[in-house]
Design a protein around this nucleic acid. Structure first.
Lengths: 309, 309
DNA sequence: GCAGATGTGGCCGGAAAATGACCGCGATTA
DNA sequence: TAATCGCGGTCATTTTCCGGCCACATCTGC
C-alpha cells in the first residue's frame, strides 16, 4: 500500500472503531513504519480530526468521540463480518418480540440490500450456507439500548425500573463484556456510580433533564465494570506451554489477558471467580501448565493434583 | 492545497452531497487542474467508490450511492441490532489482522454510512456510548469464511490443510455453535461426513470442481454437529473419598449414579461428553479421587495431573 | 525515584508520486 | 454537423513520501 490516501482512509476506518491502538499496532496494520504513521496522524490532525494520544507504557492513539467522517465503504471482509455479526447476534437470546436478536434476525435477512452490488452474491452465498445455534444469553431490548444511547449522547437523566425499584440515573456508557450488556451510570439516588445489567432494565424513560458531566470513576467504563465484577474474583497468573492462539481458544469463556512468551509458551492472566473453572479449558488444551500466583491458588492447585492421583 | 489526501477527502465530501458537478466546477473548488481532478476521480474509483459520469454537454460527476441503494430498509431496531452485532463480533476474537473480528470492528465504525439519514444520529449516538471488552476466542479469517460460502453456494469441492493434513471435501454448511464456527462437509478422502473447526482450516482453495449434492446426514447441520460433539459421551467410574451427599452435590450438573462404599467413600458412575467437565465439581469438593475406568480416561487423567504440576 | 515503554518530531538522502500542459479520441447533445 | 465535455496517454519538472536515526518528553510499574 504505497498510496498515502488509501492509507489515511484505512487509518480513519481503523480509528473509527473507537478502540485505542498502539503506534506499533497501527503501523503494522497499515503496513508502514511507525515514523510514517506518526506523519499520517499528524496529517489527520491537520485535517481537523481529533486524534487523542497517550505516551508512556500502554500508550495509544484514539479518535475522539462524535466526529464526522468522510464516507467510507465496506470492503469485502467487512461485509462478511456484518453478516456474521448479525447471524451470531440473531442466534443469541430468546428471540422475544422487540429483542435485539429478533431485530438482528430481520436485519440479517435484508442487509444485502445495503451492500455494494459487487458483494451481493457473496453475501447471499454466505447466508444460504450458514446455520447458527442458539447461544443462551440474556436477551436485550433494542429499543432500550437505543434509548440509552440517545440519553447518553444528549446527557439526559433517565429513570427506569430495576429489580423492582425505580432508579434515576445519569447514563454514561453501555458496556459489552462476556456476552452481556451493562449500563454504567451515576445513580442520583445513591449518589454513586452503579453498573446495571441492561437486560434487567425495564420501563426506561428519558426525562429530558440534562446533567453536568462527571469524570468517569475509572480510566474507561470497562475498567470500572471489571473492578466491580472482579471484587470476588482473583487474578490468576499462569504459564501455559502452548501457542497463544490455542490458549485463547481454551480460555475463551474467561476474562483473560494473554501474552506470548515464545512461539509455544503463553503467559495468561485470568480473572475468575474460582480457579476451579479454569480446569476444563486447560484439560482440553492438553498442555503443561504452571500456576504462578496468587499463592493461595497455587497451593490449592497442588493440593488438588495430589488428591486426584 | 497541494496535498493529495486532503484534496481527495474534500472531493469525497463534495460528492457526498449527492449533487452532480461538472469537471470544471470540481477542479475549481479543489483548486487544481481538470487533469488532476480526473486522476483523483480515477483514484476514488480504484478505492471502490461508484462515481458516475456523463460526457457531452451538461456532463457531470456524481456519487451513485443513495440513488442505487434504497436506504430505508432497516428500521430503528434493526439498525441498532446491526451495530450491536458488529460490536459483539468485534469483541470476540484476537483481533489479528485479517480476522473477522477485525473486519467487524471496522465495519462497525462505518455502518452509519449505509443507513438512512434519519438513523444516523441514533447510530452514532450508540457508537459513542459503547465500550466493548474483548472476549478471547478463536479467531476466524473472514477470507476463509467467505471462500467457504462461495464454494457452498456453487457446490464446488475445496481443498484445505487441517491439522497438517491436506483434505478434499464437499462443503455443505457453516455452523455457529457456542462461539465457534464449524464447517460441515463430506470428506471425499474418508468417504464420510466430517465437521471441521473453521479457525483451524488453513490454505483453503476452491478447486472449482463441482459435486453432486448428497442428503445431509441429519435433519440440519447443527443436529449433526451436536450429535458429533455428544458422540463421545462415556461412562466414567470413579471413587471419591467423601460422603455420598457431598458427591451428589458436587456432581449435581452431571448424570451420575452413586453408591456409598462406606460413610466417606463413594463410587460414582458418571456419563459425560468429556471427562474434563468433571474437574470443577471435583475440585470444589476437595476430596481424594481415583478414576477406575475407562482406561483411556484414566490415562488422560494421569497425564493431565502430570502436566499441571 | 528509576527503568523501560511509548509517543514526538527534527533531519537526511534516495525513491516515488503528483502535477500541469498538451494532445487526440469518443460520447453526447442541440 | 458542431460544440461540449469526459478520458487517458506522454513527458519534464517539482514535490512529496519514506524509513532510518536520534534526542527528548511523558507516563507506568516496580
Amino acid at each position: 500500500m504505497a498510496d498515502v490516501t488509501q492509507r489515511v482512509l484505512a487509518l480513519l476506518a481503523t480509528l473509527q472503531t473507537g478502540r485505542a491502538f498502539s503506534g506499533d499496532e497501527l503501523a503494522g496494520r497499515l503496513g508502514t513504519s511507525p515514523r510514517t504513521l506518526r506523519r499520517d496522524i499528524e496529517k489527520l490532525r491537520g485535517y481537523g480530526y481529533p486524534v487523542q494520544t497517550q505516551p508512556g507504557p500502554g500508550g495509544y492513539y484514539r479518535l475522539s468521540r462524535g466526529t464526522v467522517m468522510p464516507p467510507l465503504l465496506l470492503d469485502d471482509e467487512e461485509a462478511v463480518a456484518a453478516m456474521l455479526g448479525l447471524a451470531t447476534l440473531a442466534a443469541s437470546g430468546s428471540a422475544g418480540s422487540g429483542s435485539v436478536d429478533d431485530a438482528a434476525a430481520r436485519a440479517y435477512g435484508k442487509l444485502d440490500q445495503f451492500l455494494p452490488r459487487r458483494l451481493r452474491h457473496r453475501v447471499s452465498a454466505l447466508r444460504s450456507g450458514l446455520e447458527a445455534g442458539r447461544t443462551p444469553a440474556p436477551s436485550t431490548s433494542a429499543a432500550t439500548m437505543s434509548l440509552l444511547a440517545e440519553a447518553i449522547a444528549h446527557r439526559h437523566q433517565i429513570t427506569f425500573r430495576y429489580a423492582g425499584e425505580l432508579r434515576r440515573v445519569e447514563p454514561y456508557r453501555q458496556l459489552h463484556l462476556r456476552l452481556r450488556w451493562y449500563l454504567l451510570a451515576f445513580d442520583t439516588g445513591r449518589d454513586d456510580w452503579r453498573v446495571f445489567r441492561i437486560d434487567r432494565i425495564t420501563d426506561p424513560v428519558d426525562t429530558g433533564h440534562p446533567y453536568a458531566e462527571r469524570p468517569l470513576p475509572a480510566r474507561t467504563g470497562l475498567d470500572y465494570l471489571r473492578q466491580g465484577l472482579g471484587k470476588d474474583s482473583q487474578r490468576v497468573v499462569l504459564t501455559v506451554h502452548a501457542p497463544l492462539t490455542a490458549v485463547a481458544d481454551a480460555l475463551r469463556h474467561h476474562e483473560a489477558d494473554l501474552t506470548a512468551l515464545s512461539a509455544d509458551r503463553t503467559r495468561a492472566v485470568v480473572t475468575v471467580d474460582a480457579w476451579q473453572w479454569l480446569l476444563p479449558g486447560l484439560a482440553f488444551l492438553d498442555a503443561d501448565v504452571v500456576v504462578h500466583s496468587p499463592a493461595s491458588v497455587r497451593a490449592a492447585w497442588l493440593r488438588f493434583t495430589a488428591r486426584i492421583t
